[in-house]
Simulated scan of single mutants.
Amino acid sequence: MIEIPNYKTLNIIHIVCDYNGTIAKDGMVHPEVKVLFKTLAQSYTLHVITADTFGSVAAQLADSPVTIKVLSGSDHTQEKADFIDKLGAESCAALGNGNNDAAMLQTATLGIAIFGEEGCAKDTLIASDIVCKDVTDALSLFLHPKRLIATLRK
């Protein structure tokens, strides 16, 4: 539990990450992400949600302690938001960068937009609580919660 003065108390159980553009580039997971996932899995349940555009998510995350959700519907934006609702939005943090991540970030109790090498869609930026320059900085927030407090307190 993270008490953020004059903001809210975060009781995050689930960290949900978009795949391409967020934790992966061109279907390849950033190596630092795999290391961070192993550490974060000791305290959080980790999920990766993706359309799996490159068909690489299962192989790339085979040794990682994550649950993979491959999107199957025609409305990925809604499907991502519904996934957060099903987990319990009040216990979820979500990370993403694309237009289809905006509703997911807005639904989660904590939405983090990633402004990585692919950039970040305007609607996702607006829907977020925090913006990070890359995914490793974003995931590290959960290992150093005082960073969350410093950023979000009012």
Rank of each mutant, 00 (worst) to 15 (best):
F115H: 07
P145M: 15
P65F: 13
D85F: 12
H144K: 08
G119F: 09
L148M: 14
N100A: 10
K86N: 08
V35Y: 09
D18I: 10
L40C: 00
N11H: 11
T107W: 08
L105M: 02
D137N: 09
F37K: 03
G111R: 05
K154I: 15
Q106Y: 08
D82K: 14
A51G: 06
D75Y: 05
L148E: 01
F54R: 11
Y19A: 05
F54N: 09
L87S: 02
G88P: 09
D82T: 13
V66M: 03
H47I: 08
L87V: 05
L110A: 03
Q42K: 15
L152R: 08
D82G: 07
D75F: 06
T50I: 11
A93M: 02
V29R: 04
G88T: 12
I68D: 03
G88H: 12
M28F: 15
I12N: 00
K38N: 12
H144M: 06
I68L: 09
S64P: 07
Q106S: 11
T107H: 10
A94G: 02
A127Q: 02
D129I: 13
A121R: 06
H14Y: 15
V16F: 13
G27D: 00
K80I: 04
C17H: 07
S128H: 04
A103Y: 03
G96Y: 15
T107M: 12
G98P: 01
I149N: 14
V29S: 01
K133W: 13
L125M: 10
F83S: 04
G111F: 08
E118H: 14
T67H: 14
T67L: 14
A102S: 13
K133Y: 13
T39E: 05
V48H: 01
